[in-house]
């Protein structure tokens, strides 16, 4: 009589096949999918490049600034870059819709440039990256981050010392 139980259960629950290509699929909440990059938060510390095992992340010095490149087609979604990013500039989304025609192979990438600017303190050419928040107490406010972004490393140190923290 066990089959009756199974029969009724299948009748109530419906088919177990997920209707994916014809309807949206369910995605787990903490699915490790395509990497997203937020240029505004990147400090240019290059920790992600160091920990990336398949070499999906690369930083290049270009005349415009420091270029961040990430190729999704060699990323293994290990999440190390997200773990080591001090400012959460790199985050993993739950997007897994990455199947693509071979023509778009090299388009599956993030290419962003942290531009060079003139330091507002001393006028030196410097990168407009976000300040490193590690060891800064109390933490930076959003206004302070914008202020620090426009300073060169020496002026940043000075500003931090005036603020009264060890960096």
């Amino acid at each position: 009589m066990n089959f009756l139980k199974i029969f009724v259960r299948n009748l109530v629950k419906g088919p177990s096949t997920i209707p994916f290509p014809f309807a949206p699929a369910w995605t787990p909440e903490r699915m490790r999918g395509r990497i997203q990059f937020k240029l505004q938060s990147c400090t240019g510390c290059r920790a992600c490049e160091q920990v990336c095992a398949p070499g999906a992340i690369r930083f290049d010095k270009t005349p415009e600034g420091l270029r961040f490149m990430r190729w999704h087609n060699t990323c293994v979604f290990c999440g190390m870059c997200e773990f080591y990013c001090p400012t959460d500039a790199i985050s993993q989304s739950d997007d897994w819709h990455m199947a693509h025609a071979v023509g778009e192979k090299y388009g599956m990438a993030i290419r962003e440039v942290i531009p060079y600017i003139a330091c507002t303190g001393c006028g030196m050419k410097t990168l407009a990256s976000a300040p490193n928040p590690v060891g800064v107490a109390p933490p930076f406010t959003p206004e302070e981050i914008e202020q620090q972004r426009n300073l060169c490393p020496a002026c940043r140190k000075k500003a931090l010392a005036e603020r009264g923290v060890q960096s």
């Binding site: 990323c75 979604f77 897994w96 819709h97 990455m98 199947a99 599956m108």
Partner: peptide, 15 residues
């Protein structure tokens, strides 16, 4: 067609 992932999800392979 390329299906990136390490490994890709079964749904991604179906896609």
């Amino acid at each position: 067609v390329n299906v990136p992932g390490c490994p890709p999800r079964p749904q991604a392979i179906i896609e």
